[in-house]
Design a protein around this nucleic acid. Structure first.
Length: 412
RNA sequence: GGCCCCAUCGUCUAGUGGCCUAGGACGUCAGAUUCUCAUUCUGAAGAUCGAGGGUUCAAAUCCCUCUGGGGUCACCA
């Protein structure tokens, strides 16, 4: 059997991270089985349709390199197909008209059941609790419940991995498959990701999209790694996985039945792990892509800054916070009279330095600290406006004597 | 409320009857390294495995009940 999975976003907005994780799992599962993963745009809701949403959906998958089949299907272009199958139901006397819409006749006795691949559990719904549901809306467009089933069958989807919120509509889908006499795919309902308030992650609760994380300076590998481990654990203690490793070991049986809470703090840690694991060159490339105006800095300066900054940033965005002094964007600090006096001493001592290197600079700084019985934080404050930062002697060396002195000159 | 799903440290989790006086990771706290910060390293606190009943020589692991949390009840997906 050729495995095929799909992600069917509806273009009503930018998908948040939970939906993207569902795409990831579909992708990992398909790739693990040498199968195919396809993208289908479910744009049958004309009221909530957002023109740019599809672009964002593609951009997310593209950035994360969750590659899908080239042929993107759009349901709005398949209306005739759904009408044809609606007609078939009508001929079988399994549907009826209701206020301009068409409803499917659900069986009212017996039960509908399936074995869900998550936790391998039996789920049963009594048919008497089920209602006849709309398959074609009065505007002629199919509903999700209808188009989704038709397309999953026509596109030969073998495994439906989707959010748990669809469990209660699954009986509808199964009865539709039965009405047509089609094979029923394997269902795997993924527990939904919860926010810190333990409510389902949603835009209302400030759930971000993958694009937001990208813009906040997260690396795609780190985001994927974190998303994958939310609810999936192949056993053991390993936390860092490359995508190809994940593909190799991915298995539905290792997905938990419990809803996990999204923890941004652990994501930060993971992102930091990935940043540290990059070579200086890789990190430089990431930073230049992230901050195009980094090219204003001399190449040599950037390259010297990378190793200093590497262990100190959790996101690419923090690079600028660490290097403000190089861009002249740092705050000017309010210095006390003593601190101003120290600034003057500092200036006159540094002015006399001939070979401007961090060892020499450090000697001078130590001298000043000892003489004035102060600690390093005061010197940081004088130069950068903050009491902490990248190693000061190295920073001053990279900055160059001229600029370092001019900073002191401005404030003394 | 009906129906459905779930339940191990604050969080992510390991665990599928004896190796569990419950392991790892994040976070927290303490210490070491250090020119600040960060990294790195070491250590600590932190879960009577939601509760109560069973089954068993033996249960976090199996069964039942309860409680709690979540999802869903649209001509949205």
């Amino acid at each position: 059997m050729n495995i095929r999975t799909r992600i069917p976003p509806s273009p009503t907005g930018i998908p948040h991270i939970g939906n993207t994780r569902t795409a990831l799992f579909n992708y990992l599962f398909a790739k693990h089985n040498d199968g195919e993963f396809i993208l289908r745009i479910e744009d049958t809701d004309r009221v909530r349709f957002v023109p740019d949403a599809e672009k964002a959906i593609l951009e997310i998958l593209n950035w994360l390199e969750i590659t899908h089949g080239k042929n993107i299907q759009r349901q709005s272009e398949r209306i005739e197909i759904y009408k044809k199958y609606a007609k078939e139901l009508k001929e079988k006397n399994l549907s009826y008209e209701d206020n301009g819409a068409i409803r499917f006749k659900m069986p009212k006795t017996g039960s509908t059941k399936w074995i869900d691949a998550i936790g391998n559990k039996n789920i049963t719904f009594e048919n008497k609790t089920q209602e006849d549901f709309v398959i074609i809306k009065s505007d002629g467009f199919p509903t999700y419940n209808f188009a989704n089933v038709i397309d999953d069958h026509l596109m030969e989807i073998t495994h439906v991995l989707r959010g748990e919120e669809f469990i209660s509509s699954t009986p509808k889908h199964i009865q539709l498959y039965k009405a047509f006499g089609w094979n029923i795919p394997v269902f795997a309902h993924l527990p939904v990701i919860l926010g810190p308030d333990k409510q389902k992650l949603s835009k209302r609760h400030g759930a971000k999209s993958a694009l937001d994380y990208r813009d906040d300076g997260y690396l795609k590998d780190a985001l994927i790694n974190y998303m994958a481990l939310l609810g999936w654990n192949p056993g053991g203690d390993q936390e860092i996985y490359s995508v190809s490793e994940m593909i190799k070991i991915f298995d539905l049986k290792d997905i938990n039945s419990t809803s996990p809470i999204f923890d941004p703090v652990k994501l930060d840690w993971m992102n930091q792990q990935y940043i540290q694991s990059k070579s200086n060159n890789q990190l430089k490339k990431l930073l230049v892509d992230f901050y195009p105006d980094l090219s204003k800095l001399p190449n040599e300066t950037t390259e010297k800054l990378i190793p200093l900054v590497k262990s100190r940033i959790k996101t690419l965005k923090e690079f600028k916070e660490q290097t403000e002094i190089f861009f002249g964007t740092n705050e000017k600090s309010n210095l006390s009279p003593t601190e101003k006096r120290i600034t003057i001493t500092l200036f006159s001592k540094l002015e006399k330095v001939n070979d401007w290197n961090n060892n020499k600079i450090f000697e001078i700084l130590k001298e000043v600290m000892n003489q004035n019985k102060i600690r390093m934080n005061i010197l940081y404050k004088i130069f950068t406006g903050k009491e902490r930062g990248l190693p000061l002697p190295e920073t001053l060396e990279i900055l160059g004597k001229e600029k370092a002195l001019s900073i002191l000159n401005q404030i003394k």
